[in-house]
Amino acid sequence: MVAVITARGRKKISKYKNVKTVVDGHKFDSKKEARRYQALKLLLQAGQITDLELQKRYELIPTQRKSDGTAVRVVTYYADFVYMRDGVQVVEDVKGVRTDVFVLKSALMLQVHGIEVQEV
């Protein structure tokens, strides 16, 4: 297990054994995601992809109100990477572990936005 010392001096164990990593001032949730960023950066420099975006936000379900007026918060999906390749938008999510939440949100991305999320 990977342990991280929190601000209060306690050890926090990463659920999926990922190690947060910083590259070019960008904080990534895992080493795998940081490596993918570095690979995409090379493709960008080589002109094979364009318009690289990190952590692009997509709204899946807007804020709603219950019958008593309380708000039910918006449901969002943050794509790890979005870029253009050969005139086509590519949306990527780097996964070490495929979670039920990811499966649901990727299905909603297809339903709501017509975008198929590529799992890396």
Rank of each mutant, 00 (worst) to 15 (best):
M1K: 13
V2T: 12
V2L: 07
V2K: 13
A3C: 08
I5R: 13
T6A: 10
A7I: 11
A7K: 14
A7Y: 11
R10H: 15
R10T: 12
K11S: 09
K12W: 15
S14L: 02
S14K: 05
S14N: 08
K15G: 01
K15Q: 12
Y16S: 06
Y16H: 13
Y16A: 03
K17H: 14
N18W: 02
N18V: 01
N18F: 01
K20A: 15
T21S: 02
T21P: 02
V23L: 01
V23F: 04
V23Y: 05
D24F: 06
D24V: 03
D24H: 11
G25T: 02
H26N: 10
H26F: 15
H26K: 14
K27G: 02
F28P: 01
F28N: 02
S30W: 03
K31D: 00
K32Q: 12
A34P: 01
R35S: 10
R35E: 14
R35N: 14
R35G: 00
R36V: 07
Y37D: 00
Q38K: 12
L40I: 02
K41T: 06
K41V: 04
L44D: 04
L44E: 15
L44F: 09
Q45S: 08
G47T: 05
Q48N: 12
E53Y: 07
L54P: 02
L54W: 00
Q55V: 03
K56T: 09
K56M: 10
R57F: 01
E59A: 07
E59G: 10
E59F: 03
E59P: 00
L60F: 05
I61L: 09
I61H: 04
T63E: 15
Q64F: 08
Q64V: 07
R65E: 09
R65C: 04
K66P: 00
G69L: 01
T70M: 07
T70D: 10
R73W: 09
R73G: 11
R73K: 15
R73E: 12
V75R: 03
V75I: 13
T76M: 09
Y77W: 03
Y78P: 05
F81A: 01
Y83W: 15
D86I: 11
G87H: 13
V88F: 11
V88N: 08
Q89H: 01
V91W: 02
V91S: 04
V91C: 15
E92V: 06
E92Y: 03
D93H: 00
D93T: 02
D93R: 01
D93Y: 00
T99M: 05
T99E: 04
D100F: 07
V101C: 05
V101R: 14
F102D: 13
V103T: 13
L104K: 10
L104R: 12
L104Q: 11
A107P: 03
M109R: 06
L110D: 11
Q111E: 13
Q111A: 10
V112H: 03
H113Q: 07
H113F: 13
E116V: 12
V117T: 01
V117Q: 00
E119I: 15
V120I: 09
V120E: 06
